[in-house]
């Protein structure tokens, strides 16, 4: 796992970045209609604010299911890269899904965790990542060997590039600040689903 050599060994060594800034950096690197599944909360809102890609799916509820939904899309379309964008509180709800992804050895799947150590949308209560839990270490323990903390913005972009170019599954941990999101996702589920399916070429 030489790729992790230049990345922080633990969460507390990673730089605290801005969610909207790194979401924009990620979206700017998507050149092949990659699918992105945005989990609930501010992670999702900033994905919406970063541009209305038809290959984006925005969850509205079902907290914790971004990784399973992304795995389903990846199974259905093995030629397309799929990214699950999820928060720390959300992934803690469905941490078993990391083991499922590892067991599937899903090559076209990457998971990006936005970790600010809080349930920010409900008032900033602490999650267990702020109290010592390390999502990247948990992902490695689940069997996703290619899991790393992004040291800073440049390292984040490198890891995104790597995950788009090389076989996964990948997990990229990002420490982020507690800034409010830039916009709020439109809450229109049938429209979101319909546009996503058209964006994936499933509907014409």
């Amino acid at each position: 796992m030489t790729f992790t050599a230049n990345h922080p060994a633990s969460r507390d060594q990673a730089k605290v970045m801005n969610r909207f800034d790194i979401t924009k950096r990620m979206v700017a690197r998507l050149k092949h209609d990659e699918a992105v599944i945005g989990g609930i909360g501010y992670t999702n809102f900033d994905l919406w604010a970063a541009g209305r890609r038809p290959q984006n799916f925005y969850m509205l509820g079902s907290m914790g299911l971004a990784v399973p939904i992304a795995l389903g899309v990846a199974l259905a379309q093995p030629q397309r890269k799929v990214i699950a964008l999820e928060g720390d509180g959300s992934i803690l709800m469905q941490v078993g899904s990391l083991a499922t992804v590892a067991a599937r050895k899903q090559k076209n799947l990457a998971i990006v965790i936005m970790d600010n150590g809080t349930y920010q949308i409900t008032g900033g209560q602490l999650t267990s990542t702020e109290l010592g839990a390390d999502i990247v270490a948990m992902a490695r323990g689940a069997g996703i060997a290619q899991s790393a903390w992004a040291a800073d913005e440049a390292a984040f972009e490198e890891l995104i590039e790597l995950s788009l170019r090389e076989d996964g599954p990948w997990l990229i941990g990002c420490r982020i600040d507690k800034e409010k999101p830039a916009e709020t996702t439109e809450r229109d589920p049938p429209r979101i689903r319909d546009q996503f399916m058209r964006g994936l070429g499933v509907k014409q």
């Binding site: 699918a35 799916f57 299911l65 399973p68 199974l75 078993g96 899904s97 499922t100 399916m197």
Partner: peptide, 13 residues
């Protein structure tokens, strides 16, 4: 999780 996977798969065809 199983429901999430089947939901994503449906949207992917």
């Amino acid at each position: 999780e199983a429901v999430g996977i089947v939901s994503g798969a449906w949207m992917g065809g």
